[in-house]
Amino acid sequence: MKTPPVKKQQVIPFVIHEQAFTQPSMIKLTTPNGYQLDFESTLAHQALAKLLSVL
């Protein structure tokens, strides 16, 4: 019995720049396979980094 081929994951680096926003806005991340993640721009960059680290 053959095992199915393992799909390679692609890591796409990004940089988080902190800046003041006058109005709440959204950050949308879309993966190559179509998943979408929406976050409020006021989310602390540490919290966003922690969420992304478990994906």
Rank of each mutant, 00 (worst) to 15 (best):
F21Q: 08
A47I: 12
L29G: 00
T3K: 13
S41D: 05
Q36Y: 02
F21S: 01
H17Y: 15
H17G: 03
A49L: 12
L43Y: 03
K7P: 01
Q23A: 13
K7D: 10
I12K: 09
S53Q: 12
A20I: 13
K7N: 08
S25V: 06
V6W: 01
L37N: 02
T22I: 11
L48C: 03
M1F: 07
V11D: 02
A47R: 11
P5H: 03
K50Y: 05
V15F: 05
K50M: 05
T3H: 10
A49K: 11
F14L: 04
K50A: 06
V54M: 09
V6T: 14
I16N: 06
Q36C: 09
T42P: 02
T42I: 15
E18W: 09
H17K: 14
E18F: 09
P24L: 06
Q23N: 13
P24W: 00
K8C: 05
P32T: 06
P32E: 08
L48A: 03
K8W: 04
K7W: 06
Q19E: 13
T3Y: 08
F21D: 04
A20V: 13
K50D: 08
T3E: 10
S25A: 14
Q36I: 06
L55D: 01
E40D: 15
Q19C: 08
L37P: 00
S53H: 11
E40T: 09
V11C: 12
H45Y: 14
H17D: 11
K28H: 08
Y35I: 07
Q9G: 05
F14Y: 04
Q46C: 10
A49C: 10
Q19A: 13
Q46K: 09
Q46D: 15
T42V: 11
K2V: 10
T3V: 07
Q10W: 14
A44Y: 11
P4G: 09
H17L: 12
K50S: 07
T30G: 02
L48Y: 00
E18Y: 05
F21P: 01
D38M: 15
A49I: 12
I27K: 02
A47G: 03
V54G: 03
F14P: 00
K8T: 10
V6G: 00
M1P: 03
M26F: 11
L51P: 01
